[in-house]
Design a protein around this nucleic acid. Structure first.
Lengths: 81, 81
DNA sequence: ATGCTATGTAGCATTAATGCAACATCTAGG
DNA sequence: CCTAGATGTTGCATTAATGCTACATAGCAT
C-alpha cells in the first residue's frame, strides 16, 4: 500500500552510533552490512530521525562491540562518553 | 489506512517479561500502566508474537528493575534465569 | 577538472508494532 | 452457582521503521 509516511516520531532515543562507528573506522555502509540493514537506515538512526527496533539495536550494539545500554538511552548522553 | 496486518514477524526476540512480572506480583495491566502501553501489548510480547521497539523495551526493563540485556535476547533463555 | 566515497534529503512502498474493542475461557472466591 | 480478574484470540485502524532509488553536495584523491 502507499500511504502518508513517517520521519520524526514522537519518541526519540538518543544514541552514540556515530561516535562508536567512527572509533572503529567504519563507514555507515560497513556498519549497515554488519548489522544487515540498509545504509540509509544507519543514517536515519545517527540523525535520530527515528528510533530502532529492539532487534536492530541489539544487532548494531553487537556490531560495535557495545552494550545496548551504552549505545542507546532515553536521556541525552554527556559529551565524550 | 486499513490494510492487511501483522502478528508473527520474521525476527523473534526472546524475553522473560512474564517471569520478571510474576516475580513482582504484577498483572499485565499493572505493567502496561507502568510502561505506558496497552495491556494487550504486554500479552503479545510475552507470547512473543512480535518484538518491541527499543523505547518500549527500555521502559519495560525499567518498570521491572532489569537491564534490557537481562530481559531480552536474540537467543533463547535457559530455564530458571 | 574528474572521479570516488561518504553523507544528507526526499519520495514512496511494505511490513511490523501498537491501540483498541469485543468476546471466549479459566480460575479463585464468595 | 455466580462473579470478577487475568489471560488468550481475532479483527481492524494508525503510525513508525525499514528498504530502496535517485539526486545533491562536500572532500579527497589523482
Amino acid at each position: 500500500m502507499l500511504l502518508t509516511m513517517s520521519r520524526n516520531p514522537e519518541e526519540p532515543v538518543y544514541n552514540r552510533i556515530e561516535e562508536a562507528r567512527a572509533a572503529l573506522g567504519l563507514s555507515r555502509q560497513d556498519l549497515a552490512d554488519k548489522a544487515g540493514v540498509h545504509y540509509q537506515t544507519i543514517g536515519y538512526l545517527e540523525r535520530e530521525e527515528y528510533s530502532p527496533s529492539l532487534v536492530l539495536a541489539i544487532r548494531i550494539a553487537k556490531s560495535l562491540n557495545q552494550e545496548v545500554s551504552e549505545l542507546f538511552s532515553l536521556t541525552p548522553f554527556k559529551k565524550g562518553k
